[in-house]
Design a protein around this nucleic acid. Structure first.
Lengths: 251, 251
DNA sequence: ACGCATTCTCAGGGGATTCACAGGAACGGG
DNA sequence: CCCGTTCCTGTGAATCCCCTGAGAATGCGT
């Protein structure tokens, strides 16, 4: 039914597919309904087939019948703790990669134990761009899905390259150091080349879902990025006054 | 079958159709009746099948039976808030794209997240042209409807091109810089080539619905546009004295 | 605890954009 | 050919949008 890709940004992007040919399947487990909803939408937007559960029991049940290729799992659930859910999950799906969601102040060693198997985690509040990127990384590396995957981790726009695995950025072969936020912003731009992105879109996607600050942080970080990648070169980041920003190869 | 198009403007325009063959269905949800009416008319004018609801409960009910291909949703509703409506809506129609309407000065942080799924939004007061353009974009990208879709983001009239994604405009291959208002005006003209558009129509469509200024802004902006796209070339923007303006390829 | 990196707020400034106004040009009917 | 109407466009002011420096607050590693 979802045969056509529901992605809206980045129409030319290669679509991740599972071996059978259908879209990658992801299970979202979180008891905060709005957050689960937000995540589900963002992941569907990637072209993935998403289901969600609000507690551990539901997660196990859904895992059994849905057989997802990846799981996004909140470690704080009402009925059972993260470790228990993980154990039962692995009973059903031994090799499924898991992305944990955890509060900032959670005990670090617990997480370290959970992610020992090559899984990953992000702390709340997270940005959607970050969750999607981590999940893509997990799926790609797991090898169970991810068939139609080229050199997926490298984004290229003109002579500008960004490696989503190593987080290395270079323009004209010369390496460029970016901070975490700068990197996320540039990744979002580069994943949508030649497309005007409004400041609101950027804010929604790159900043945490609970960010309540001034909207001009976007302008500020665009300014930072330009200093680092557009200095003394044909500029690639362009302003569309009244509309937003876009990145494109100089020409 | 395209000849049976109910559109009144632009007979040659490709008509968006849903997979079954019928017109695209859109649900408008807004408690301000005049505004809902205005929107509905503008969307019917696009050849779409439109229904409207004045509150969240009505929206859910209508979504269930009407099964729209897209939804226009005011985030401020009398009975429930935007996120709640969105949640219930998605319960009925998991993949329907949503265009949010929001007040300019609304609390920004409640918007953040709403648009995460690839949805979009416009701030009040908006122009109808903007709403229609955004909605077309959402429908086109959602893939559920949008069958008769070519290279939709590019408008072409003679040697003049306008890209709705990158906001780039060129005549004879040469790039042209337009301001936001000039861009919207040209888009409206190009979406209705060879058709006379009255100043009133243009004002209603391109300017915000609460614009209270002088009617000759249209003349002024036509003048701006001519300087930029018709300078020293066979003119494409023509005046029909007493009637309005139209754009057509020189010849 | 200390220093450095990073994130973000605030505010000033500059330039682009929008728009009103008004005089002049073009048009069309008589 | 005259005149009223409609349209075009120069000028200028107000506003809006965007850029960026300075510095506070926070986080992070040593």
């Amino acid at each position: 039914m979802l045969s056509a890709s529901p992605r809206s940004l980045g129409p030319m992007r290669t679509q991740m597919l599972r071996p059978g040919g259908g879209p990658v399947r992801v299970l979202v487990v979180d008891d905060e309904a709005p957050l689960a909803e937000l995540l589900s939408m963002a992941l569907r937007y990637e072209g993935w087939d998403v289901r969600s559960a609000g507690d551990g029991a539901g997660a196990i049940r859904c895992a059994r019948e849905f057989r997802p290729d990846a799981v996004v799992l909140d470690v704080m659930l009402p009925d059972m703790d993260g470790l228990a859910v993980l154990g039962r999950l692995r009973g059903e799906l031994p090799d499924v990669p898991v992305l944990f969601l955890t509060a900032k102040d959670a005990v670090e060693d617990r997480i370290a134990g959970l992610t020992a198997g090559g899984d990953d985690y992000v702390t709340k509040p997270f940005s959607l761009e970050e969750v999607v990127a981590r999940l893509r990384g997990l799926i790609r590396r797991s090898g169970t899905a991810a068939v139609a995957v080229r050199d997926e981790s490298l984004l290229v726009v003109g002579d500008l390259t960004l490696d989503e695995d190593s987080h290395e950025v270079a323009r004209g072969g010369e390496g460029i150091h970016l901070t975490a936020t700068e990197f996320e912003l540039l990744r979002f731009l580069m994943r949508n080349p030649r497309r005007v992105l409004s400041k609101a879109q950027i804010l929604d996607r790159v900043w945490s879902y609970d960010f309540g600050g001034q909207a001009n942080v976007v302008e500020l970080y665009i300014s930072y990025l330009r200093r680092k990648i557009d200095v003394g070169r044909p500029p690639m980041i362009h302003t569309r006054r009244g509309a937003g920003y876009l990145i494109k190869p100089g020409g």
